[in-house]
């Protein structure tokens, strides 16, 4: 095969291979092997033809899945929907708390044991309303993840369209976060953070 590859000299060593360049190489090899008539080379010729067919088929299949829709349609739609969830829960929570404010005022007027009981129950509603803050932060994390996926899909598309695999640039994921950025993770999932009791103990160790 080595004598069939001189055209590779036109390609920068260590650089990325353009799609047209790769096809040019394959066609060059096919062309040269085609004229030898040697059995071994005949076999290589056949395999190279099959390889070209596989590459063409793979490209066609990737094209049929319309991966650009992930970036242009599906992810923006998903993030819009999630933003709407945050907005709707914020609005609903606001309405609940407006009612709590009214009940709280009435409770003050009622006074006594019943008034205190009303205040206690309304306080519990206030506390429960913090779900909106927590879910909002969680949804924000999901939106950020979707945007990361969008960037990766974009890069993947660029590779499939213009480059040979293996030449993808560094991604922009969270793996390399450091300093304050590494401390911004939003609400931890159950079991991955520490409890208020653990926090109290930890703080006490500093005293």
């Amino acid at each position: 095969m080595s004598e069939a590859m001189p055209e590779q000299n036109h390609i920068e060593v260590g650089g990325s291979y353009g799609r047209d360049q790769v096809l040019k190489i394959i066609n060059s090899v096919i062309s040269k092997v085609e004229h030898t008539g040697d059995d071994a080379r005949e076999s290589i010729f056949k395999e190279l033809k099959e390889l070209r067919a596989i590459i063409d088929e793979a490209r066609a299949e990737i094209g049929m899945t319309r991966p650009s829709e992930i970036k242009d349609k599906h992810i923006p739609t998903a993030t819009d929907e999630l933003d709407a969830v945050v907005e709707a829960t914020a609005e609903a929570t606001g309405a609940i708390m407006d009612s709590c404010d009214v009940i709280m005022d009435k409770a003050s007027a009622v006074g006594g044991e019943n008034g205190d009981a009303m205040v206690n129950e309304v306080t519990k509603i206030y506390e429960a309303c913090s779900f909106q803050d927590i879910t909002g932060q969680r949804i924000t994390k999901v939106v950020k993840t979707l945007k990361d996926i969008e960037v990766k899909v974009e890069k993947l598309l660029a590779v499939v369209s213009h480059k040979m695999p293996g030449s993808a640039e560094e991604d922009s994921g969270d793996e390399g976060k450091s300093g304050d950025a590494a401390l911004l993770n939003g609400p931890q999932l159950p079991g991955s953070g520490i409890s208020q009791d653990d926090i109290d103990k930890l703080l006490a160790e500093f005293d």
């Binding site: 401390l183 939003g186 931890q188 953070g193 520490i194 409890s195 930890l202």
Partner: peptide
């Protein structure tokens, strides 16, 4: 909501 040990520290 940041409840990791490193945050508290």
């Amino acid at each position: 909501a940041e409840s990791k040990t490193e945050n508290v520290v």
